[in-house]
């Protein structure tokens, strides 16, 4: 199965619910106020949020007028195009010309950082890269053991310290080891933290500073791991994590459920942060680079 088909298959539920709703709205009728209202409901239900939804609808209305669109069915194409416009172009990973590349995973509790670290390690291993996983979540009980299992599964090197030790020290160790052993990619898993806890956010700031001191330009990617079931609070998460750690992109996880993760549209619109990967299952290969065009196509077609 190709990448696109796999994406389509794993987005099955999203397609079923979201696309079926859009179909229902568009079938059988002319373009009227009621139709716009139902489209609005559908977008809100996908967690797109009020401001982004309003912008999408305004653009739709304007284009319907200027392009003299009469068939409701044609709205589907317009909507696809407008969502795509908000999602923007795909943004590639920012990896340095000379290794090691340093990737930091951050996010609130329970979004899937540790699992994503494992999948990401596997992703780079598949490209023949030498990968090191750093267990910088020293807070959650057994998080280190969990990551170690992923390191074994993906065939990555693993750096850890005791539970409760300073996460910045773990990252320091990991970077030393990476330099000594010629590692291509270092992936650091950090403890989940609510973005409103200033002392925990300061701890992340320290990790970033330590990384920057040890490897030029590091961390090259700071990925915010976001649970697709999250609602509008995701905006606040993205804003605060970006402030403290300079987030470069988003990993949208748990897209194999019924949640649409529409809030990433609002995040791209308001903060300019692109989605870089999506998680579509619990298996180690269930992580794919995000391509807006393919994603929109997979949802609508």
């Amino acid at each position: 199965m190709g990448l696109f088909d796999r994406l389509k298959a794993s987005l099955g539920k999203v397609r079923e619910t979201f696309t079926a709703k859009i179909d229902n709205v568009l079938r059988r009728r002319k373009i009227d106020e009621e139709l716009y209202e139902e489209l609005e409901d559908t977008l809100i239900l996908a967690d797109v949020g009020v401001p982004a939804t309003e912008e999408l609808l305004e653009r739709l209305r304007a284009r319907v007028k200027t392009e003299r669109v009469e068939e409701a069915e044609d709205l589907r194409r317009l909507l696809q195009e407008e969502i795509l416009r908000l999602l923007g172009e795909p943004v590639p990973l920012l990896l340095p010309p000379s290794p090691p590349a340093v990737i930091l995973l951050v996010g609130v509790n329970g979004t899937g950082k540790t699992t994503t670290a494992g999948k990401l390690a596997y992703f780079f291993r598949q490209q023949g890269k030498k990968v090191l996983l750093a267990a910088a979540d020293t807070f959650r009980a057994a998080a280190i053991d969990q990551l170690e299992i992923w390191a074994e599964k993906s065939g990555s090197l693993f750096v850890r310290q005791k539970e409760g030790s300073d996460p910045a020290a773990v990252v320091f160790d990991a970077l030393q080891a990476a330099k000594a052993r010629g590692v291509d990619v270092v992936i650091a898993d950090t403890a989940g933290r609510l973005h409103t806890k200033s002392h925990l956010m300061a701890e992340l700031g320290k990790i970033v500073r330590v990384a920057a001191r040890e490897v030029e330009g590091a961390p090259h990617e700071v990925l915010l791991v976001l649970d697709a079931t999250t609602g509008q609070n995701a905006l606040s998460q993205a804003r605060l994590f970006k402030e403290v750690t300079g987030v470069t992109g988003i990993v949208l996880t748990k897209l194999d459920g019924t949640a649409k993760g529409g809030v990433v549209i609002a995040i791209r619109k308001e903060l300019g942060l692109p989605v870089k990967f999506i998680g579509t299952g619990e298996k180690i290969e269930d992580l794919a680079p995000f391509n807006p065009a393919e994603f929109v196509k997979a949802i609508f077609d």
Partner: peptide, 28 residues
Amino acid sequence: DAMTGQDAVTVAETFHQRLGLDGVVLTK
């Protein structure tokens, strides 16, 4: 998770139908 978006309803409804929930714990 208290940060759950619109899908909270779908999730809760499905779990409720399958298991007959007695209550909910809202976290975070």
